[in-house]
Amino acid sequence: WVPTKREEKYGVAFYNYDARGADELSLQIGDTVHILETYEGWYRGYTLRKKSKKGIFPASYIHLKE
């Protein structure tokens, strides 16, 4: 896992994603996520609506905010 280059990196989910394991994070369309790390097509972070739950999710489900 590699920390993100920018201190504040955010994105928005444009697909729903159902977590398949305890380390994964479920997403709903429109969720804003804070991205902490990246690795081979995956991000690690949390949604702003539930900051206490961190997990991994596919990068392809996220539109990055500039």
Results as ranks from 00 to 15, higher is better:
L48M: 12
G21K: 11
T4Q: 10
I62R: 00
T47N: 15
T38M: 11
D18T: 14
V33K: 00
T32G: 08
P3W: 05
I56C: 11
Y15S: 14
K54P: 08
E66A: 13
G30I: 03
E40D: 13
L36A: 02
D23T: 06
L48T: 10
I62S: 01
D18H: 12
L25T: 00
A59E: 04
Q28F: 09
L36W: 03
K5M: 10
S52G: 12
L48W: 07
G45T: 03
G11C: 10
K50E: 15
P3S: 06
V2A: 10
K5P: 10
E37V: 04
G55S: 02
G45K: 02
E7A: 11
L64H: 03
R44H: 06
A59H: 05
K65Q: 12
K50Y: 13
G55E: 01
L27K: 02
K54G: 06
A59L: 04
G45M: 06
D31A: 04
R20C: 10
L27I: 06
Y43Q: 00
T32M: 14
K65P: 08
K50M: 13
K65N: 11
I35C: 04
P3I: 04
G30C: 09
L36R: 01
S26R: 04
K51I: 10
L36I: 09
V2R: 13
W1A: 08
P58N: 02
D31Y: 04
W42P: 00
K65T: 14
I56M: 10
E24M: 04
I56H: 04
Y17H: 02
F57S: 01
Y17Q: 00
K9C: 15
V12N: 01
Y39S: 13
E37W: 05
Y10R: 05
R44Q: 05
E7C: 15
G30P: 01
F14A: 13
E66C: 14
A13H: 01
G45R: 03
D23F: 09
L27N: 00
S60N: 09
G30V: 03
E37T: 05
G21L: 06
L27F: 04
I29N: 03
A59M: 09
E8V: 11
G21M: 08
P58A: 04
L27D: 00
A13I: 04
G41R: 04
E37D: 08
K9D: 04
L64K: 01
A22I: 09
I35R: 00
Y43N: 00
I62W: 02
E40V: 07
G11N: 01
I35T: 00
D31E: 08
Y43S: 00
G11M: 04
L27S: 02
W1T: 08
Q28V: 13
T47F: 05
Y43H: 03
H63V: 13
I29L: 06
S52Q: 11
K65A: 11
W42H: 01
Y46S: 05
E24N: 02
N16C: 12
K9A: 12
Y61E: 03
T4M: 09
K65L: 15
H34I: 14
V2G: 08
A59R: 10
D31C: 07
T32I: 15
H63Y: 09
G41K: 06
T38E: 14
T32S: 07
K54N: 07
A13S: 05
K54W: 11
D18I: 13
T4P: 10
D18N: 12
Y17F: 09
N16Q: 11
Y61A: 14
R6W: 10
I56E: 02
I29D: 02
H63D: 08
T32H: 13
R6G: 13
E8T: 09
I35F: 03
S26T: 10
G55N: 00
E37S: 08
F57K: 01
A59Y: 03
E8G: 11
N16D: 10
E24P: 03
Y46I: 05
A19R: 01
W1V: 07
K50T: 11
R6D: 13
G30Q: 01
E40R: 10
N16K: 12
S60V: 10
Y43I: 04
L27R: 00
E37I: 05
W1I: 07
D23C: 13
K53L: 11
G30K: 01
P3F: 02
K5C: 14
Y46M: 04
E66I: 12
L27M: 02
T38D: 04
G30D: 02
D23M: 07
V2M: 12
F57P: 02
R20A: 09
Y46Q: 04
S26Q: 05
S60I: 11
L64P: 04
V33Q: 00
E8P: 10
S52A: 10
R6A: 13
G11F: 05
K50I: 09
A59F: 03
P58G: 03
P3K: 06
H63L: 13
R49W: 11
